[in-house]
Design a protein around this nucleic acid. Sequence first.
RNA 1: GCUGCUAUAGUGUAGUCCGGCCAAUCAUGCGGGCCUUUCACGCCCGCGACUGGGGUUCGAAUCCCCAUAGCAGCACCA
Length: 494
Amino acid sequence: MQADAPEQYTALFAKHEHRKGLPDLEGAEHGVVMRFAPNPSGPLHIGHARAAALNDAYVKQYGGRYILRIEDTDPKRVDPDAYEMVKEDIRWLGLEITETVTQSDRLPFYYELCRELIGRGGAYVCTCDNEHFKELKQAKVACPCRDQPVETGLALWEKMLAHGFSEGEATVRVRTDLFNPDPAMRDFPVFRILDAPAHPKKPDAFVYPLMNFSVVADDHLLGVTHVIRGKDHIANTRRQRYIYDHFGWEVPVYRHYGRMGIEGVVLSTSQMRKGIDDGVYTGWDDIRLGTLRALARRGISPEAVKNAMLAIGIGDTDISFSWDNLFAENKKIVDPVANRYFFVPDPVTATIAGAPHHVAHAQLHPGDAARGVRTLAFEGSVLLPAAELRPEVTMVRLKDLFNVNLAWDGATPSFAYAGDSLADARAAKAHIIQWLPAQEAVPCTLLTPEGEMTGACEPAVRSELDKVVQFERVGFVRIDAVSEDGVRAYFTHK
RNA sequence: GCUGCUAUAGUGUAGUCCGGCCAAUCAUGCGGGCCUUUCACGCCCGCGACUGGGGUUCGAAUCCCCAUAGCAGCACCA
């Protein structure tokens, strides 16, 4: 059979091979041009990461260009600091951006295209009151401006550009279909006048394109072939087709992925900004926020973020984002590289009777002896985690050191050296716990989503600033700050 | 209300276009075990899903209809 019909044979089995990776994009065989188009209202958050990572992955898969387009055509929603923050976040994510455009730099280009669109009869200048227009639209009735001759439209457009109208007095509308069953499609606006606030980058501007116009203009001029965005843009895609049709341009391939619910962090830019201003959050990287910089501060690697987003993919179903899955991706990346250290939460000082002085050597990484060891000198007393010292506990083993017997006088334990034998500890089912030499422990605050945990860590942790390490038996943490007073670490995950 | 989209285990995802190999994939999570001087890593075993109801068919996760649920849009935001 295999020899007779090899093609059918392979097809038979290909069908049920389980696909991994992203689905193919139609028409992408010869490369793609894609874009990531954030609004500069604040730093990027997890929601942005999905669009950013998906587009990035497809450009890498098919080859081509990846455009960063800053969509700053609404001065009300522009934070001047966001331009730089967005770029920082993109660098952190490791996107392979090939070029960057900023829409506020391109206003003359949009104006020229608008002139052309009006000239083609594809748009008109509407001077109706906005509320009135809405009523007409609902009733599928043309507003008086709709029938204006092309010359009138062009003249009114020039008047707009000459500031002959103020805010709200004139808007450019695309001629679509008043009988479209979806009222959202009917003669939607593409340019409006905004007298205030001034645009942070273009203080003299007052005629602004709406997103549906600038996006089409740029996508066409930049040669964008494929667009992957959230399904909140489905209606915009349909609107944009009208503009493409008026110009006679070729339409890109679109994919709209479903809504992603994210729990446990704040994502709304306005809410974040208010919280920062009010002093509720320490900044854009406060770990209670869903920004990428907050994730970075918690010790999440950019690769983990991208991998998690690619695993979610471009399905149009609404999904809920899983922190567990992100953490699992991160652990795969971080576990092989993170050095191990002792951190003793809620430390109790214990003087151990009868113990010889001893220098312990603990591996920096259990899977990689070549990385070397940390040395901890035992000189009589140690710090132990209070949670391990419960009245029913009669023996513990200090990891990489020796065994300790506990004798309880009521609630007060006393500690005595119990030999070096690991076998003894195993026989006694003693917990193997982390410890620190009392004389050289460094104060350490561990910040978790649940709150602050105070404790102490090894002195060597001081050299791990900005790195993710594992506090043995506690979890992975990122060393956020090192000072005279000690170490501050953020809990990443188990 | 109008317009459109979607529905696979706790979570994410493959399979759905072109019905049979699907008593349904992989990951994560959870439970158990092994390994281990970490409650990490690794390995093994297990748990767990085709929204409901009709229809077409020899045969339906896959096609059709209805229901239900969720989501998006109906901005001079992006």
